[in-house]
Nucleic acid binder design. Structure first.
Lengths: 230, 230
DNA sequence: CGTAGCATTGATGTGGGTCAACGTATGTGG
DNA sequence: CCACATACGTTGACCCACATCAATGCTACG
């Protein structure tokens, strides 16, 4: 793998405090793989072989039952995913597919568990990462159970704006179908919700959403969704 | 605190491998407190002072917005809760209240973080615990987004039966209002869903549910909900 | 016993899913 | 570079699951 990618991974919270020898151990076992668009990387129910890190591109985590399917998370560089399954060595609960061509760094699960057992700093970082993800899940579940579609969309716009710099311009990084699935609604209803929020502080066209009246938008959102997400 | 309680806590996965000195450090800082029914233990938004462990009684974790409220989890002895907030030293995302009179062991957050930093075994146990909880949250979110009310109830009955020994007799540990809130439906609809499942493999009366035809019930449930929960 | 909260049942309303038709972008090959 | 094709997004009509409201029956606890 390239030096630049290695350095990039080194800066992640998960790895920045790991001892040099242990980091080398991880990186020597790792390999970087390129995937085309719309490729399934992980199938839920299987046992984890690798800890995945998205280095470039976008990955969707989703759950499926017989005929239904829902987006659980959208992963952008540079982020790990399915850490919990690797740590516990238990079956994946989510599936994953690429939304764009992507580069994924794959660390053999055995190496991760081994370094985890021998490097205190890595163990601490893993805990911090897991706790962060756990909290993200709690927020998603509360959002889903306590808010209706319009509120979830308003929450998402405010939160995404915050993540993108808070300048009132939100850019979708993917199609609206995926956003709809992430927000737990159909594409049709996402359209309708966007249209209805147009009277309440936003204007949207294509993949751009502009917040024209943050206060009005906030009144449509869940009053308590001020906490960090992800 | 009593010797018996101390020994009980010692057997938890979270503490069973902790070094003796570190375990003493935790227990010396801890205190056991009795709470009456329907007392709010934790208010979301506040910073965590203590890691809580339910030693006796039942505790409900819930989320609220202005006028809505939903049950996120029900904690029975002997289990910790709000570990993630303590680890990250960030505001609670859930509130907690007693459903019955309860004994709660409270470990000062500072001690937990300190032992966590100095005892590798404790750190590992914390990771395992967090990963387990994380996976529970994923299951809840998938359940909520992919299943309708009847399916969620069927899932819950099958899962709870499994936890209670798998003998086909499920006993509710709390009122149906709480169960309804946990399953993300109104009490009225829980009644209706129970009535409709009566034609599909269960019979219920009061706080007892009997599985009379497990196969029929399974056909009403989500086909993939066979993974462990909590 | 009596009463107050809980569970049930029915009637009705609504958010959001589904189906269908139409418009608009994206990208490919001639 | 345009023409066309295919997928995506939007809009409207309709329907269904579930919430809400209201009335009644239970159960439990003082």
């Amino acid at each position: 793998m390239r030096r630049a990618d290695r350095d990039l991974v080194r800066t992640l919270p998960l790895f920045c405090d790991v001892g040099a020898a242990h980091f080398d151990e991880l990186m020597n076992a790792a390999f970087l793989q390129h995937f085309p668009q719309h490729v399934v990387l992980i199938e839920e129910g299987l046992l984890p072989d690798f800890l995945h890190i998205v280095v470039a591109g976008t990955v969707e985590l989703f759950g499926r039952s017989a005929e239904r399917e829902t987006t659980l998370d959208i992963i952008r560089p540079v982020t790990t995913f399915i850490l919990a399954a690797v740590i516990r060595d238990e079956p994946y609960l989510k599936s994953a597919r690429t939304l764009t061509p992507a580069q994924i760094l794959m660390l053999p699960a055995a190496s991760v568990r081994s370094v985890f057992d021998h490097d205190v700093h890595f163990a601490r970082a893993v805990v911090a990462e897991l706790a962060l993800r756990y909290r993200g899940m709690v927020l998603s579940l509360k959002d889903q159970k306590l808010c209706n579609g319009t509120e979830r969309l308003a929450n998402w716009i405010l939160e995404t704006d915050r993540q993108q710099g808070g300048n009132g311009l939100v850019t979708l990084g993917h199609g609206k179908r995926t956003l709809a699935s992430r927000l737990g609604m159909t594409p049709e209803n996402l359209s309708r919700n966007l249209a209805s929020l147009a009277h309440h502080g936003i204007s949207s066209s294509g993949r751009k959403i502009v917040i024209t009246d943050r206060e009005a938008l906030r009144r449509c959102a869940w009053p308590d969704a001020r906490v960090e997400s992800q």
